[in-house]
Every structure is written in C-alpha cells, then in structure tokens.
Design a binder for these strands. Structure first.
Lengths: 132, 132
DNA sequence: TCTATACCCAAGTAAAACAGTTGGAAATGA
DNA sequence: TCATTTCCAACTGTTTTACTTGGGTATAGA
C-alpha cells in the first residue's frame, strides 16, 4: 500500500517546475530528470499526462521544455496525483458499489472510504506553493 | 494504491469473529471462509498473523477454531491492519529517513506523511464494534 | 535549408509483488 | 484410534510496476 513512482515522480517534477515558475521559462526534460534524479524516458510519460491534464504546457525545439500553466498556489497535490495515476481510493467498491457483490452486507467499506476521504482531503488542501 | 486482500480479508474475518464474540465459541476456519467468501488456505495464513499479534486465540481439534481475545470495542482497525500487512505508510522515507538519499531537499515528504497520518488516525479511531 | 535541440508516442520487458495453492505435520476430543 | 481442526513451509500463476527501446515530429538558429 504505497504511492507508486508515478505519483512520487510526478509531484517532484511539479515541485521542480514550481520553483522556476516566476521566470516563465521552459525547463527541459533532461534538466528536470537530472535535478530530481528521475529516469528521463519514464518521466517523459508522466509529463505527457500532466500536459493532457492541462497542468503544464510545452514547447518544442531549442530552448523548449515544460512549464506550469497556473501558479503554484493554485495547483493542488490531488490534481497532480489524479493526472499521473489512478484515483485515490483504497478499495474498488468505494468508487463503484457494483464492483462488490456483497457490498450491502460489508461493513468494512465504511473504514476504507473514510480513510480514502481523509487522504483526498489532505491532498486537495495542499498546494504546490506550500511545498516550496 | 489499494489496500491488499490481506488487509481486506483480515478485517472481514475479524468482523465475522466480532459478530459472535458474546458466545465465546470457537469459529472454524471453514465457517469464516465460507461466510466471508475468502479462500480457505489463504485466510488461514492471515489468521495465523492475527494470532501472533494476540488479537485472536485458537483451539485445535473438534469444535476448535478461532475467537477474539479482547472485546470488539477494544480492537482498532489499525491494529488489525498492522497485524496482517505492512505498516500504513505511503512512501519508504516517511518511516525511515535514511531510506531516501535526498530526504532533506524533498519537500514532497510533507504531504505523504500527512496523508498517511490521517489514514492511521481513522484506522486507529475505528473499532470493530463500530463496524457491526 | 540544414541541423541540433527538444518534445511526442507506442510497444516491449525484466523484476517484484500479489493472491492464492499444495501437501503434509501436529494437536485435540470423542 | 480416528475424525476433526489448526499449524506451517514451499511452490506457482498472474498482474502490476518501473522502466527501456526505437522510432517520429516540431522549432530555432546558423
């Protein structure tokens, strides 16, 4: 029950971008991967997802790279996690009651969904700015 | 990032035992596995862990089985999860700062540990009795 | 227009974790 | 002594994870 590298790398990459938000310059994949010690090609796929989620924008060619769209104070950790990885649920039946045949007589769900809700709350209330 | 079957099955087995706590009778592996729809041999290993954690006690032979040691109101979900599975941390470096070479300059840890703490709190504050 | 720089993207892969199974030993009560 | 029940270690198929490979495409500067 651990956060995967997708989530961890994704957040670290976003923190890296947030650091240089003010300059509005594009940061290359290579520089992010080197600064944060993340495998280049793997990180690329994560950045692609962050772009599709419209958290970052890109530019190709010389001097190209990645940069944040919104300011760090306006980007929550939850958004980042949802962009790069699966939703923050602890069991299948929490997000989809039909996934569990014995959903009705399964009192355990109460704990799992409470726990997930708290995790989500913390992630939603924490912004990139707070992590700088 | 899901709770494994160890945690889910373990909790459900404990709920099952809690249901019959008052009678003080031993419930057989088979009956628990059938009532909760959990593979028998797999469940056996989980019950062994719960016994080692001194949450349940056992008796062999005819009319043998498993039963709770303490009353349901006195058993937290956290205890159960710790007994059958790994500690409730989201990243390695939260429980062990030396596991991460860049621990000091990694602001992301703050979120991970906050999230884990909230999960733990919910699990600690929820007892078996509340799930009945 | 050529070329170096950088992002874009699909498919493949080794290793680890997960979820269970197999097969038997040991204790207990009738 | 025998049916019942827990105890326990080793094995195994499947899925997920964490990457890697090998291309393609846009952009800027010489």
């Amino acid at each position: 029950m651990k956060i995967t590298t997708k989530g961890r790398y994704g957040l670290r990459a976003m923190v890296e971008l947030a650091r240089n938000y003010k300059e509005r310059e594009y940061q290359s994949l290579r520089s992010i991967s080197e600064n944060q010690n993340i495998p280049e090609n793997y990180l690329e796929r994560l950045l692609a997802k962050l772009r599709k989620a419209e958290l970052i924008e890109t530019h190709r060619g010389t001097q190209g790279g990645y940069r944040l769209i919104r300011e760090p104070a306006d980007v929550s950790v939850l958004e980042i996690l949802l962009a790069v990885d699966e939703p923050l649920y602890l069991v299948e039946c929490t997000k989809n009651a039909t996934a569990c045949p014995q959903y009705d007589r399964c009192p355990s769900n109460v704990v799992w969904s409470k726990m997930a809700k708290e995790m989500q709350r913390v992630a939603r209330e924490t912004t990139l700015k707070e992590l700088l």
